[in-house]
Design a protein around this nucleic acid. Structure first.
Lengths: 209, 209
DNA sequence: CAAAAAAGGGATGGTCCCATCCCTATTTTT
DNA sequence: AAAAATAGGGATGGGACCATCCCTTTTTTG
């Protein structure tokens, strides 16, 4: 059984990261620790295959480079056989190099760390040995979230809203079909159903219909 | 239709906050913006009832108090009729006062901002006019997440694992029944089913069974 | 114009989860 | 010893969503 540990003090972020890990490994157990103390106890009591670490933990100075390295170092030494992924909000290339030197397999900025990226990171690690994803803002339009839509319908609206100009809807349906491993006709159906729901409720649709 | 905007650069956190907002308002639309520019455009184009803001945005110095205030101020001025909630990782009481003075209705630290807290914050706002939740680490045990469990089963395991010593399981079932608005017998069933699944797969159970 | 793309809808079977009610041993408390 | 709590099951109906296949009309594009 694949076992992972997420060390992150921000609750919503910790839960989101745990979700990402779960999405990447079909059968697994994921533990979430809010503090280094909790993490240390768990690392002593059990074996882990993967550890995700945010170095900015309670009780440490987030601006002190020494504190940040100390946190990661302690965790890596407590779980030498695990893969270690560092996730941080204040990322920079210099720090990435530092963590790489002490054994981290990936260094990720929180900005741009979206659902699914975790999978790519794991691919990077197994093929290249290291994954570096620095923060950068890339959105040009907002994301829309409608409570009336099912996840599939929401997905369809999302992808269509981000359609590049000149791209046919059919192409988006194919893309969606690929990504979700479903039929293109089904993808089209979800989009149309979603659109109909929003129209019925008088919603101002995101641009791109 | 209730309309909300979440301004936060960290994607996973933004999505999580959007989820929290959705969970608090049955029928609603939630927009997510990664940058102040995107947010500003949306605020000009439409009316919003609620705006959630993380002042640490790309293009601004997260250590500069002036930049942080400027971000929130610009958003509040662009949506004077909305409720404004400031969410930040580096929270302190002093900054909270500052944002309250310029019109924010709540100031939340990301540590300890868990699923469901958002609801309480909205209650605070409507009863007391302001909600302050500073970060503090409160966990003493890790959270466990098992991919084999359904959400309900996971919930049951969670609550039982955090059972205070001396508390009867029956009481936990009642509590769970209350929180999920279901029958206590059903809650008991979920727990037993979850436990059986974990045992069958040879999982080391979290303490507290 | 002809062909392709898009809008708009109806019907279907399957699956997973929710929620409930039922039952019997075993253990712990009182 | 009696009562309560716990462990361990089986069976059921309903609902939401998934995924598919089918259909017609309008619009856009080549």
């Amino acid at each position: 059984m694949f076992r992972a540990l997420v060390v992150e003090d921000q609750t919503l972020m910790r839960l989101a990261l745990m979700n990402e890990v779960q999405a990447s490994f079909e059968k697994c157990v994921v533990l979430g620790a809010e503090t280094l103390n909790i993490a240390t106890v768990e690392l002593q009591n059990g074996h882990f295959d993967l550890v995700v670490i945010d170095p900015g933990l309670p009780g440490f100075d987030p601006t002190s480079q020494g504190d940040r390295v100390a946190v990661v170092d302690r965790i890596i030494e407590a779980s030498p056989s695990a893969i270690h992924i560092v996730v941080t909000g204040s990322d920079n290339r210099c720090e990435a190099d530092g963590f790489r030197r002490i054994g981290a397999a990936a260094y990720l900025g929180k900005t741009g760390l979206a659902p699914g990226v975790f999978n790519d990171v794991l691919d990077d690690i197994s093929t290249k040995g290291f994954s570096l994803r620095l923060s950068r803002a890339v959105m040009t339009k907002p994301d829309y979230r409608f409570s009336v839509l099912t996840p599939r319908e929401q997905e369809a609206i999302d992808m269509m809203a981000h359609r590049a100009p000149g791209v046919k809807r059919k192409e988006i349906f194919s893309l969606m079909a690929d990504r979700l491993a479903i039929d293109a006709g089904s993808a089209e159906k979800y989009y149309k159903q979603a659109r109909a729901k929003l129209m019925r409720q008088g919603h101002p649709l995101p641009q791109g219909l």
